[in-house]
């Protein structure tokens, strides 16, 4: 049977995948996608926990609200983030992490 732990494992694995992507990939846009993946993984854990915390016959909608806010914030973050990335691309003609290493030390 499918238990809460199954969901939590999927959430954890997706989070780990996102983290690995952030470390491995060098394309800033893909790194950014991986960050969205991590955020979604966290959302899955939240929804899972809330579904299994049944009070008076209903799941905990407070956690659902947090998920709602997270998604909204993520959307705003993506918009601003992509704008920054585009601005960077215009000056550098590249979205590789290796090119943003002017400051060292």
């Amino acid at each position: 049977m499918i238990t809460l732990n199954h969901y939590l494992f999927v959430s954890g694995a997706l989070f780990a995948l996102g983290l690995a992507g952030v470390v491995v990939r060098r394309n800033i846009i893909i790194i950014f996608m991986c960050l969205e993946m991590m955020l979604s993984a966290a959302n899955l854990a939240l929804v899972g926990f809330s579904r299994f915390r049944v009070t008076d016959g209903l799941p905990d909608y407070a956690a659902h609200s947090l998920v709602f806010f997270t998604i909204t914030v993520a959307a705003a973050e993506v918009a601003v983030g992509l704008a920054v990335i585009v601005a960077l691309y215009r000056t550098r003609q590249s979205v590789e992490v290796d090119t943003i290493t002017r400051m060292q030390g």
Binding site: G12, A13, A16, A20, G21
Partner: peptide
Amino acid sequence: AVIGGVVLAVVLTLQVAAVL
């Protein structure tokens, strides 16, 4: 970076599994 990323992911997944 690849090795680091893979190790990080594996460790994190294992840790989640252990916690679960």
